[in-house]
């Protein structure tokens, strides 16, 4: 290949990416300490930083800004697939109070048994499944279960 695509200032882009990373980490640290519960503010801000970092890498380092329709099309065909995938997952993420993942527990590293069920998790699953937690408490007297219904 003999045609040279346009070159940009690598140093300038490097500084921008490092500045964005530093700003993102500082924002994350401040957010996790001061407004961890304000998810929209914390996550929205972090995702904006991530978006711009990804944008610069994609457009300049991966040279997409200077590519033609064929190369761009190779990436854009994934967009409807990603949207389709998100739609398929949406019921699970939107209706999370109906889920029953037994995931809010800690295992004892020595025995492999459930050692702790995180406080309140029993009440967040459907009532019909809560017997699982109660059964567990009955059959594992050594386990420490927090929250309503625990021992």
């Amino acid at each position: 290949m003999s045609e040279h695509p346009p070159q940009f200032s690598v140093k300038k882009l490097w500084i921008i990416l490092l500045a964005l990373t530093a700003a993102e980490v500082v924002y994350g640290e401040i957010g996790n300490r001061n407004f961890y519960e304000q998810k929209l503010l914390l996550w929205g801000g972090l995702l904006i930083f991530a978006y711009f970092k990804g944008y610069y890498i994609y457009q300049y380092f991966m040279h997409m800004k200077y590519e033609g329709a064929i190369v761009k099309g190779n990436v854009w065909f994934t967009v409807p697939l990603v949207i389709y995938f998100m739609i398929m997952l949406w019921p699970d993420t939107a209706a999370n109070d109906k889920l029953n993942y037994e995931i809010a527990h800690q295992l004892d590293p020595m025995t492999g048994d459930i050692a702790t069920i995180i406080e309140g998790s029993r009440n967040l699953v459907n009532e019909e499944f809560r017997y699982l937690y109660d059964d567990y408490a009955a059959t594992h007297p050594g386990a420490e279960i927090h929250g309503e219904g625990g021992n």
Partner: peptide
């Protein structure tokens, strides 16, 4: 998948 599992986790 990570987002679904995280959203479905009470804590």
């Amino acid at each position: 998948t990570y987002i679904v599992l995280r959203a479905g986790s009470p804590e």
